[in-house]
Simulated assay, not measured.
Amino acid sequence: MPISPNQGSSGGGTLVTITGVNLAGATAVHFGTRLATITANTPTSVSVVSPSGSGAVGVTVTTAGGTSNPLPFYYIGAPFKQSLSPTVGPSAGGQTVTINGTGLYTATGVAFGADTAVPTVVSDGQITVLAPPGTAGTVSVSVTTAGGTNNGFSYTYVDAPTLTTVTPAQGPASGGTSVTLIGTALSSTGAVTFDGSPVPFTVINGNVVSVIAPPGTVGAVDVAVTTDGGAATVVGAFTYLAGPGI
């Protein structure tokens, strides 16, 4: 007499189907000592909503002909989340997010606001998931397992940056020129490069970043910014000039 599923939330509410023979007219289904709610019954099956409980219990079906042998059912507690990392990512989605906690082995879904992604279960204490695309802003993150759903974490989506203006657009090859980068979604800037080389920078606001041009080789170089939302590059945005000679 199979039972499916054979596990569910300790809070109850799991729809369970028991199949076998001579089940018509079932009068009671017990999970351990607790009575379940029968929702459907045929000669070969009984569907019930599990009561609350804990640990492993025996499930029995009672009809006018007697009580069946018990089948094991395992109660699973709601998951507990300890950490989520990283907590910020691009609105385009695709970032790998790691969630640590306990009771995660049966995780079937991770919701980022209204959007749900399917996790990869690493162990009972860890899952990973690719963040789905989202709108710039902070959303709640919840994990659903056979034991229930647990909330409590947040994830912040950041739009991809744009870089529209580099001014001034030229300076001496010896470096030292104060350069202003103008664009959008620059608040979380984590790196600025001239010709691929990182340079110190100061975030003025979401649209402005200030840098000091480093020494370089005569000619045009690319300028790039990297933020939590991605990267933006302007090809040949800054030109290094040769110094005068006499």
Rank of each mutant, 00 (worst) to 15 (best):
S4M: 08
S4I: 10
N6F: 12
G12H: 05
G13W: 04
L15D: 08
V16I: 08
V29T: 03
G32M: 01
A36W: 00
T37V: 08
T42N: 03
T42W: 01
T42I: 03
S45A: 14
V49G: 00
S50G: 05
P51R: 00
A56Q: 12
V57D: 07
V61F: 04
T62L: 05
P70T: 02
L71A: 12
P72W: 03
P72Q: 10
Y74E: 08
Y75V: 06
Q82K: 10
L84S: 05
S85L: 09
S85P: 01
P86G: 04
P86T: 00
G94I: 00
T96F: 00
T108R: 15
V110M: 09
A114E: 14
T116H: 09
V122T: 11
V122H: 05
S123Q: 05
G125V: 06
Q126N: 07
T128Q: 11
V129S: 11
A136Y: 05
G137I: 12
V139W: 04
S142W: 01
G148I: 05
N150W: 02
F153M: 08
F153C: 05
Y157D: 12
V158K: 15
T164R: 15
A169D: 15
Q170R: 12
G171I: 08
P172A: 11
G175S: 06
T177S: 11
L181C: 12
L181Y: 14
I182F: 11
I182D: 10
S187K: 11
P198M: 14
N205H: 07
V209G: 14
V211E: 12
P215Y: 03
G216T: 07
G216W: 08
G216P: 07
V218K: 03
V221Q: 08
V221F: 06
V221M: 05
D222T: 11
T227D: 11
T227K: 08
D228A: 15
G230A: 02
V234P: 01
A237R: 10
Y240S: 02
L241W: 01
P244D: 10
G245I: 12
G245V: 13
I246Q: 13
